[in-house]
Design a protein around this nucleic acid. Sequence first.
DNA 1: GGATCATGTGAATAATAGTTCACATCAATG
DNA 2: CATTGATGTGAACTATTATTCACATGATCC
Lengths: 199, 199
Amino acid sequence: MGTEKLDTEVRQEQLAQAALSLITIQGLKGLSVARVARRVGLVPSAVYRHFESKDELLDAVLEMIRERLNANVVLASQGATDALQVLRRLVMAHVRLIRENEGILSVVFSDEVHNGHPARKALVHSIIQGYLKKVAQIVSRGQQQGHIRADADPGTVSVMFLGLIQPAALLWHLSGGGFDVTRHVEKAWDLLSKTLKAS
Amino acid sequence: MGTEKLDTEVRQEQLAQAALSLITIQGLKGLSVARVARRVGLVPSAVYRHFESKDELLDAVLEMIRERLNANVVLASQGATDALQVLRRLVMAHVRLIRENEGILSVVFSDEVHNGHPARKALVHSIIQGYLKKVAQIVSRGQQQGHIRADADPGTVSVMFLGLIQPAALLWHLSGGGFDVTRHVEKAWDLLSKTLKAS
DNA sequence: GGATCATGTGAATAATAGTTCACATCAATG
DNA sequence: CATTGATGTGAACTATTATTCACATGATCC
């Protein structure tokens, strides 16, 4: 057939992207090598020219997720003044990211991660840890600036930060889009930031 | 073989319990009819005497989860005085429940729920909605008693309540037990309850 | 104690999916 | 222009698993 031959780096990128899209649409269970292949105009066996196994493909997807999370932190920090403002911007960017890629939650909570190769579990752990660390740093900076109360543990706040979004995303997902994540996160953030504000 | 014959209600209970245990140990992906059967000393085909399908078995597991969540609410409310105290007790009971049954999170976030039969998705939605509603009622009661500030939306607080635990449970899971959920939830609750307390 | 019906068994079935392999093809290299 | 190596193809293989069915068995009711 008239299928173009592309360098393996390009294909890897394509395949990882196609995999994440597929997960977003069909869930991780719907992620099959065959479907991913078809999505980029290839035949199933061709995938194995670019990845050793399906597992390796999934790892590539995880790396994509890490990059997008980190990109959000950079974006939210640009032109930053108040740490609380940065956090607010970040929480909203996070909501957008999750909404546009429901697959992320599917992967993070999946069996493939929690009961698959220990290495993959460790990878996801490091991704989330890395993200939380950056959030905690923002909190620390806010404390040094005097915008955030000093007796709040940055680590605890960073986990609470995730907690603003996670259950809301779950409800949004379960309700088929009926739950208003943005509205919830705004209200929840208002409440939380009241506590965080230095008095 | 010398396998005892038991009434279908007993078997259903046994099988659902065995299924939840299996999910806790191996994840939802590791839940096969064969394994569940072996766990109660039966042969795979025998399961179909008590459940129409694997799907129906999963639904039975979900009902178990609902009952345990509701039991926690009753327990935490017993001998209640301050609503904030009730919520604190409930959050701790919830942590214990999740820690002892990691399978609950596996199921709630699974593809089988999110991309399976719409009816199952609706069931999970109703379970969580029901739980949140009860939490919100506790908050409302606290506002009437004057223990909780009046300008906090009970619905928002109930979702935040879940948010205290969910990401912590995820980290605990990912770290293989290294993350101290109880400690985090205590600190996070302290922070949140400062905001909630009526001034 | 014998009939009966729910419960348990073992074998067979069908579908799905990851993976392998022998072969084809195209682009770059010398 | 011929060679070579990377990329793509199609068919086959294997393993897993939910499900069905004909048959066995044991408890219960008359």
